[in-house]
Design a protein around this nucleic acid. Structure first.
Lengths: 336, 336
DNA sequence: GTGAAAGCGCTAACAG
DNA sequence: CTGTTAGCGCTTTCAC
């Protein structure tokens, strides 16, 4: 069943059918009825590919994320997809992993699939090594590129992010104010966002006149898959340095830290305070529940999609928007 | 840059360019070189929509899932997407929520978008009320429909699932063998899969000659968002019945049960044994760690995708494949 | 081994 | 308000 069949049955031209299909005003009510009746009767739906070819768009947005099974990214993808669908766009999801070559390959693939735009979810797509970001610039020459939780200056690139620097600084300051002096910053990613958090931690210490010690900012070389490895990592570290507080760059690391504390028989938060990041589902699953930074994921997703819709609508949109995080206080920290 | 431009620059016809592009054998090595050189030099990529129109396919598969932020579904989506991409297919993700009308709407939408096939992830898409499944039958008339973790007999529908009945029966039997007599089955979904688990629980009891008591199979009317609500639900129940074991239909409910136990000062597993389902990331995040049923998600995803590839390849494929789950024993159950 | 030409099904400019 | 027609860019017969 094509537009020709419909036009024939309705006794009109294909142009008229097309007009009815696309809600054009230039159709008499009578003709419209006639055409709609045929469409209804034949259960006709226009061919999406032909439409795509003509309009050079199929109303699809590419979503790139490193790993959609990661708690944080999964949530982001979920919200973004919801918002986009509400705006009549569909999503092509593409999980790239963490290798640069794969990110390049799949971003390029999406551009070639002629998505209308692409959203890079998570801070992993922007590298500190600037030449590694050329693939983003390249894509931005073709279509708008939106970054969710990353910062990148380039034409046709739009960013929405949480101020991780400020949020981590506030979290660290809070910990200091509860009387915890020696604080570890634990992280397992060197993304822009992770480094901003690190800076926030350092600033808080510096502001209070506490000297920075590199050994208190250990990098855990593993992804969020193996809690025991995290606990072991801390146990090893434990012999050399002393601390009563940990700020982790995500909730999973924080739970790993709690596991370490349990093993060692430390009381949380009396012997060891812990603050996580993301305020994910994990933060309420442990006991005591985890104090964590809420980085406003849902707000961010909402913002990024409405920015995107605005761009595709040819409206002027801000290239960068920054939200503030909030420390959600629970059982793993002392009260002031 | 179109195929015409390339053909002109290479001094051949568009048919030849097309042949080169599609790896046809009927091109002399020399001509091929010439064309490839131009393609390379101009960085030409064929227009995906035009290709789609001609071939009636854009190599995309629709993925329907109720909620991609759900731990279990997120993992499934992740693995399915990985496997599909490895086979040169892309995924359009569509999160439907749990309303029938939305499921219908979005499945239909994907079919109209002319995806090559669609995968329904999770057991929520098949209803006990058979007429509610007509939308699946309808879609199956157009394209192959694959069900991940659901059972449905229909032409052009293919299922892969874990034997939830058997797995739950084994889990329940195990609990009985550790000396726990009064066991609660806690669930929050009436999907086919959830009901199979319920049957498994009942069978295990019956087999041991233990009478079934409906009040020991409470239905928690909430999704996996609010642990406290689960704990409260159990606390309320607690006044009326006595039990020393809980089998939960997913890990989140199980963690909710653990939270209840903590609040009430019960020792796990001495006073209360708990078994979860899915062996998700949550199962190692709590303390003690959760005994849980591993339902072989990754295997299932792998299977479903290779079945799909086979179908699109016109090979004969099994319509139903069933894997067995495995009980992963951790700290929330006693040993035998 | 290569080219000419007929679709694929739709949109939109143009003419009436 | 409606119809005619020329694309959109590719694949695929069918000749040569």
């Amino acid at each position: 069943m094509t537009i020709y069949d419909v036009s024939e049955k309705a006794g009109v031209s294909i142009a008229t059918v097309s007009r009815v299909l696309n809600g054009s005003d230039n159709v008499s009510a009578q003709t419209r009825q006639k055409v709609l009746a045929v469409i209804e009767a034949c259960d006709y739906t226009p061919n999406a590919f032909a439409r795509g070819l003509g309009l050079n768009s199929m109303n699809t947005i590419g979503i790139l994320c490193a790993d959609s099974s990661d708690l944080y990214l999964a949530n982001a993808v979920y919200h973004v997809e919801q918002e986009l669908r509400a705006n009549n766009y569909n999503c092509i999801l593409c999980c790239t992993g963490y290798e640069l070559s794969d990110k390049q390959k799949y971003l390029n693939l999406l551009v070639n699939k002629k998505v209308d735009s692409v959203i890079l979810v998570g801070s992993h797509f922007v590298s500190g090594q600037d030449s590694d970001n050329d693939y983003i610039r390249e894509a931005a020459k073709e279509i708008p590129v939106l970054l969710l939780n990353a910062d990148f200056d380039c034409e046709n690139v739009y960013c929405g992010m949480c101020d991780d620097f400020k949020a981590t600084m506030q979290a660290t300051t809070y910990l200091l104010e509860t009387g915890v002096e020696d604080i570890l910053y634990l992280y397992n990613s060197k993304s822009y966002s992770a480094l901003r958090k690190l800076s926030g931690y350092q600033s808080a210490l510096t502001q209070k006149g506490i000297p920075l010690r590199m050994e208190y900012m250990p990098y855990f070389p593993g992804r969020n898959y193996n809690l025991l490895a995290i606990a072991d990592f801390l146990a090893e570290l434990d012999s050399s340095i002393h601390y009563q507080g940990i700020i982790a760059s995500n909730d999973y690391l924080a739970i790993g830290a709690a596991k370490f504390a349990h093993k060692k028989g430390l009381d949380i938060p009396k012997d060891l305070s812990i603050i996580g990041y993301n305020n994910s589902i994990l933060s309420t699953c442990c006991d005591p529940e985890l104090t964590s930074v809420d980085n406003r994921l849902e707000t961010l997703c909402h913002h990024i999609v409405s920015t995107l819709i605005g761009i595709l609508d040819n409206r002027e949109m801000p290239q960068k928007v920054i939200f503030s995080g909030e420390l959600i206080k629970r059982g793993t920290t002392l009260s002031i």
